[in-house]
Nucleic acid binder design. Structure first.
Length: 744
RNA sequence: GUGCGAUUAGCUCAUUUGGUAGAGCGCCCGCUUGACUCGCGGGAGGCGACAGGUUCAAAUCCUGUAUCGCAUACCA
């Protein structure tokens, strides 16, 4: 009859008492897998986890990713969709190899002393080990993803599919092998794509040298040994006496050389002296110019950043050692005109080691970007893919209109192999074969380069859903929403749209939700060098996962960065406890039977309208007389339901979370409970029952609304409620979302 | 240089697309009120960067200035 309050409510809420247990219960229930969800669910809803790099622990950015997606996932699941949240992990080629190389360095080893197979195997072991840790962390965040569909970028079927894409693109002439200027990192001994480089502003000396009758300016004297062409603007009056193709014999660094004049409009007359020499091997601009005029090109600096024999007495020296010595020599020869000490310019560096990129000319694999950019841009312009917030659409459009061909080959072992055979590799007489077996004839070698990681992760929605024939692909593609960090708008998002449109002729997702970066409490960027890195998992252990999730969501506007402090997380820990105590109070008031009374005995003022609307708690029968004040509270509650639902539909999770927080604490607890206390003590049974029903109704509705945000505490309370909902078992994870309107 | 964004309470940030500014933490005063001291009640504190404009009405729209952040490019 009456209801006995479980003892646990007499103590403050302790997240560690239930979190691991509940996750286990959820996982074992099978509800993470859409195929096991109750009822006949027809309408699919899908989101794919940005695969965390399997090279370390979960960081706070991953937590935000996962929380945002998990909120949407849990909400849609409660709404009755056939919901799939697909997890996965990324081998993260270059990134992981660097992490592993650092580890080797600490152990006094280097990858250059190992065979490729040894290195590959060691990194694989390392990655698989980390993957487990990472997945544990994902579980701790309460992530309701379907582990049975977990995918790793190096799974054999994924690799096979990536190879197929490569072959198809080669056949469609979207991939070519070409001798081009590439970004070379002298430390990591690999080429890099443009998104793997950064610019650092710095001040360097800028030198002016006498070059025959011309004065040329440069910040890089060490590249000038082979400069045999001097370029001026055809309209530059200062140089009008010279003819295109005119040759001079001039004194230069080592020996006299013959220099030829080239006239080209690309030159900026205003800049410096309006005359420049070119170094095609070590500058992509110069390379383009050399190609245009069909000039010979010559390598000056080797792959390790050392000068080649052409530098004669400077050969073998590193750039930074050679530079002052070369300047000194030119000065001795009277060729140094002047030095500007403070020349501010941006230097392209490797985004990992921050060392200057040395452009080199190499044979590499490239993706022709323009046709792909066009179809991706069209998908966005046609509204098939929408960005949150809208301003990202501009950024995206700009990027798509300014693509450069994408270098997809990396000279590292950790990655998906490029499935090609090459004859005379590295020479101008290269031959290519994409046969699976070694072609007949001599001289064929297997390509040793691996794919840029983004080549596989760019196909992630297709690969995980088993394009082209998989059942999941047919059911869930295109997916509903892609949520990820705004730093990936260049690296990842465009590639997924390109591959989606190219391979499946359909957008991979309808909505792109880009969140900002999480900063520390002083709004400083989190970085190892600043020493402000923290472990989100430790915070979850200290304050509860629910509190961490709330602190990541509330106040987090799409696209803007957010400061995160312990105080903020602590505030939501308190909120969890508040909800716990609200529950204690509400459950403590119940004095009525827990099921509707038998047919009118004429004594108890109940109706049996347990299904009048979906708010009905299924626990307390609705009394016949709800007093007007309480009716008003219930009406306000339905307004709240509408508001929260609307916010979620608009992806305004930060507002939904904040409103729920505010309603539960400052409306429900501070106003409604306080004002109901008098009714609960009333001698009039109508007042008492009306208040009990109202409070219970509000509590259970709040639990459902809050569940996507704070899954653990809400489920923990839900399972302690004195009811057994026969339709959905007793699990909140599959309880119906409150709504006036039947959703599906 | 170009593009995007920001500038609101001591700190970190909201304000749901124009209608008399809100939260958390901090601060001050008062409460051991039978749910909760991880609490309750009350309070101080903002010309919403600056200068103009549109409007009956602007933190919100427009223009300009300043500062900061992010992205992107050239520099031979």
């Amino acid at each position: 009859m009456g209801y006995t309050l479980p003892e646990k409510f007499l103590k403050p809420y302790e997240p560690s008492d239930c979190e691991a247990r509940l996750y286990d219960v959820w996982e074992k229930s099978g509800y993470f897998n859409p195929d096991n969800l109750p009822d006949d669910r027809i309408k699919p809803w899908c989101t794919i986890m940005p695969p965390p790099n399997a090279n370390g622990r979960l960081h706070v950015g991953h937590c935000l990713d996962i929380t945002l997606k998990d909120i949407l996932t849990r909400w849609r699941r409660m709404q009755g969709y056939k919901v799939l949240f697909l997890p996965g992990s990324d081998h993260a080629g270059f990134e992981t190899q660097i992490v592993y190389e650092k580890k080797l360095e600490k152990e006094g080893r280097t990858r250059f002393q190992m065979t490729s197979d040894e290195l590959y195997k060691e990194i694989m072991d390392f990655t698989l080990e980390n993957k487990k840790v990472m997945q544990d962390d994902i579980r701790k965040m309460g992530t309701s993803c379907d582990w049975s569909r977990d995918t790793f970028t190096l799974d054999p079927d994924i690799v096979k599919n990536v190879h197929n894409t490569f072959r198809k693109m080669y056949k469609d002439e979207l991939i070519y092998r070409g001798k081009r200027s590439i970004n070379w990192c002298p430390k990591h001994q690999t080429s890099l794509s443009d998104v793997e480089t950064e610019f650092i502003e710095q001040n360097d000396p800028f030198y002016y040298f006498q070059y025959g009758p011309f004065v040329i300016g440069t910040s890089r004297p060490e590249t000038k040994f082979a400069d045999k062409y001097i370029v001026v603007h055809p309209d530059d009056k200062r140089y009008s006496q010279y003819e295109n193709g005119q040759v001079f014999e001039i004194e230069w660094i080592n020996d006299p050389i013959k220099a030829t004049i080239i006239k080209d409009e690309i030159i900026d007359k205003e800049l410096g002296t309006g005359a420049m020499t070119i170094t095609p091997w070590h500058s992509d601009v110069d390379f383009a110019l050399a190609q245009k005029h069909n000039l010979p090109i010559e390598q000056i600096i080797d792959e390790h950043g050392k000068l080649l024999p052409i530098a004669e007495e400077f050969a073998g020296m590193k750039i930074e050692d050679a530079r002052p010595k070369i300047v000194e020599k030119l000065k001795m020869k009277g060729l140094l005109v002047k030095i500007d000490e403070k020349y501010n310019h941006a230097v392209k560096v490797c985004y990992k080691c921050k060392r200057p990129i040395e452009p080199q000319i190499k044979q590499q694999w490239f993706v022709k970007m323009q046709p792909l950019a066009e179809i991706a841009l069209k998908a966005v312009q046609d509204g098939k893919v929408k960005f949150l917030s809208e301003s990202f659409e501009k950024t995206f459009t700009y990027w798509m209109n300014n693509t450069v061909d994408w270098n997809i080959s990396r000279q590292i072992v950790w990655g998906i192999s490029i499935p090609a055979w090459i004859k005379n590799k590295g020479t101008d007489k290269e031959e290519i074969s994409l046969e699976i077996d070694k072609p007949s004839g001599d001289g064929w070698e297997k390509e040793t380069d691996t794919f840029d990681t983004w080549f596989s992760s760019g196909q992630w929605p297709l690969l995980t859903l088993k394009y082209p024939d998989g059942k999941d692909f047919k059911t869930y593609y295109p997916t509903d929403v892609m949520e990820t960090g705004r730093d990936l708008i260049f690296k990842w998002i465009p590639r997924m749209i390109m591959f989606g449109m190219y391979l499946a002729n359909k957008e991979p997702f309808k909505i792109v939700y880009l969140h900002g970066m999480i900063n520390d409490e002083h709004n400083q960027k989190i970085s190892k060098s600043k020493g402000n890195v923290f472990s989100p998992i430790e915070l979850a252990e200290e304050f509860g996962t629910d509190a961490l999730r709330m602190s990541l969501i509330i106040g987090n506007v799409p696209g803007s960065d957010m400061a995160l402090s312990k105080d903020k997380i602590r505030a939501y820990k308190k909120f969890a406890n508040k909800l716990w105590n609200i529950t204690r109070f509400v459950l403590g008031t119940i004095e009525v039977p827990l099921t509707p009374a038998p047919d009118d005995a004429g004594e108890l003022p109940y109706s049996r309208g347990a299904k009048e609307n979906m708010y009905t708690s299924h626990i307390l029968a609705k009394p016949k007389n709800i007093i007007p004040n309480h009716e008003k509270y219930l009406e306000e509650l339905s307004t709240l339901v509408e508001t929260i639902t609307k916010y979620l539909e608009d992806y305004k999770l930060y507002l939904a979370g904040e409103d729920l927080y505010h309603y539960i604490w400052h409306t429900f607890a501070d106003d409604i409970i306080e004002s109901c206390k008098a009714d609960l003590e009333s001698d009039d049974v109508n007042h008492r029952l009306s208040a009990q029903y109202t409070l219970y109704e509000i509590l259970t509705t709040c639990l459902r609304l809050l569940h996507p945000f704070m899954p653990f505490i809400t489920e923990e309370i839900w399972q302690s409620l004195p009811h057994h909902n026969k339709e959905h078992g007793t699990m909140l994870i599959v309880a119906p979302w409150p709504s006036h309107i039947q959703q599906l």
